[in-house]
Simulated scan of single mutants.
Amino acid sequence: MDQNITFIGGGNMAQALISGMIARGLPATRITVSDPVPEIQELLKQQDINVTDNNAEAIADADVVVIAVKPQILAQVLSPLAEKLTNQLVISIVAGAPIQLYKSLLGGYDRIVRVMPNTPALVQSGAHGLYAPDYISQADRDVAAQVMATTGLTIWVDSEKKIDAVTAVSGSGPAYFFYLMEAMIQAGKNLGLDEQTASALTLQTALGAAQMAITSANTPAQLRRNVTSPNGTTQAAIETFDQYQVSQHIQAALAAAEKRSASLAVELAEKLNTK
Score class of each variant (00 low, 15 high):
P174E: 02
A145M: 06
I155A: 14
S172F: 12
I185P: 01
G173I: 02
F178W: 09
A165M: 10
L130R: 01
D142F: 15
E160N: 06
S159T: 02
G171L: 09
I136F: 06
A139F: 15
T167A: 06
A144M: 07
S159E: 06
K161P: 11
K162T: 10
S159C: 03
K162G: 06
F177M: 13
V169Y: 15
D164E: 06
A183H: 10
G173L: 05
E182P: 10
Y131A: 00
I155P: 11
S170Q: 11
I155K: 12
I163D: 05
D140T: 04
A175I: 01
I155V: 08
I136K: 01
D140H: 11
P133I: 05
Q138A: 15
Y135M: 14
V166F: 05
Q138F: 15
I185Y: 13
M184L: 13
D142P: 11
A183V: 10
L153H: 13
T154D: 04
S159V: 00
I155T: 13
T150R: 06
L180T: 05
A139I: 09
A149P: 10
V166C: 05
S137K: 11
T154R: 04
S159P: 03
L153N: 12
D158G: 05
V143Q: 15
P174Y: 08
R141K: 15
V157S: 01
D140G: 06
A149W: 09
I136Y: 01
S172A: 05
Q138H: 14
W156P: 00
S159W: 03
A168D: 01
D134G: 08
A139C: 11
T167Y: 00
Y179R: 14
T151L: 08
A165V: 06
I163L: 12
K161S: 07
S170H: 10
D140A: 03
G129H: 04
S172C: 10
A144Y: 15
L180H: 09
I185G: 03
W156K: 01
Q186R: 12
M181W: 13
D140Y: 12
F178H: 08
V143I: 12
E182F: 07
Y135L: 15
T154F: 07
S137A: 06
A175H: 09
I185M: 08
E160F: 05
T154V: 09
T150L: 08
V157P: 01
K162W: 14
F177Y: 13
A175R: 07
V166W: 04
P174G: 09
Q186W: 13
D134P: 13
G173E: 03
G171D: 07
S170I: 08
T154W: 02
E182K: 04
G173M: 07
E182Q: 11
P133V: 07
V166Q: 11
T150A: 13
A145K: 06
V166I: 02
V166Y: 05
V143W: 13
T150F: 14
E160M: 03
V147S: 04
A168S: 00
A168M: 03
T151S: 07
L153M: 14
Q138W: 14
M148H: 05
G152N: 10
T151C: 10
A139M: 14
I185V: 06
M184P: 07
Y131N: 00
